[in-house]
Design a protein around this nucleic acid. Sequence first.
DNA 1: CTATTGTTTCAGTAATTACTGAACATCCAA
DNA 2: TTGGATGTTCAGTAATTACTGAAACAATAG
Lengths: 198, 198
Amino acid sequence: MPVLELQPVTETTERLVPLPVEPQLRKVQDDFIRKWGEMGAIWGINRTMAEIHALLYITGLPLCTDDVMDRLHISRGNSSMSLRALCDWGIIRRMHRRGERREYFESLSDVWEMFSIIAAERKRREMDPVLETIKNCIKALEPAQIGKFAKDDAFIRTRQRLDGMEEFMSVTNKVFQQFIGNAKSGLNKVVKVLLKAL
Amino acid sequence: MPVLELQPVTETTERLVPLPVEPQLRKVQDDFIRKWGEMGAIWGINRTMAEIHALLYITGLPLCTDDVMDRLHISRGNSSMSLRALCDWGIIRRMHRRGERREYFESLSDVWEMFSIIAAERKRREMDPVLETIKNCIKALEPAQIGKFAKDDAFIRTRQRLDGMEEFMSVTNKVFQQFIGNAKSGLNKVVKVLLKAL
DNA sequence: CTATTGTTTCAGTAATTACTGAACATCCAA
DNA sequence: TTGGATGTTCAGTAATTACTGAAACAATAG
């Protein structure tokens, strides 16, 4: 938890979209942002990035780098890099206002679409390589490769475990694939099927 | 990545279940363990814990603390604490051999069951609290609470975003619940339904 | 061109997380 | 009841990750 408390004194070039001021609303938004940040941290997304995304999502407004810095008390560098990363993920978008140089950022509004983007990316980056490794492991234990060890208990056990894991990950992968493919706005096909069938 | 290289010289009180020796098998297992560890790290589970689990899973054998220490080059303390944490999760089990004081640990063998346990726990620990926060946020923005702001754009936008997120998380929660409830050995009901319907 | 405004980058540092090793606790056989 | 084998805990430290702040860079207007 950062120690920083000083509120940077912004020599305001006032913004077209000012930060919300009503304390009631602000409190609600802050609660959401904090919780979303915590959850992100647990799932391997750094807290600040999750918080920035939460801020853009919850306000529903396009905000600029300075808005984010001020509202979350983070540095310009951090703001800039995290915003870029979120753009790379594809869950926020750069925006320009007519006749203004400053860049604004806004979150996608459809949660299903966001989740689907994240799922696709994590599958690609993290599950696919594991599945490939497992398949290679299985190949390396084929009778042709291990010769006389083909009947060795230890080899057999490991082989069985790999098979179990491979089945699991293949199926999971397919489910992901389906989810990703069908996700456009609102409850998607996968979820509809599930809710109906269960 | 730890720098440690020294292989502790174990004054072997030889083990009933010796570490596997065949280099071919060992290499396959190590590949799997490394990759599983990486994946764990990305998903917010510490690498060592994931590796220990991978080791127990892939060998299919009950191993003792020293086996784990030696095979993964980690300290006794680390070993002990990580094994306990895995037991707490419920994806490995303590085991005793007749007439031996030493404790052994073995992994569950059913991947579906393991995944279901993990899903249940993460839902409980991480999703439920977020959903609760969101519901509280929504309550705090009900007309009765905010009076004259009920028609304020900023309030309305935030309210809509919260609603969208709430819907998403509720449905996700239900799907998780189904998965968890039905997961016993082999492809469970949820997955069967999905694969048939798609 | 050069002043102004806004953005990106990154070396250095702060904060967090993971790990070790040694002290301590427990059990059991002799 | 003592000693070795095993298990647990935790203060201190190592390794990793996140963040800052300032400098470099880019775009635009005057």
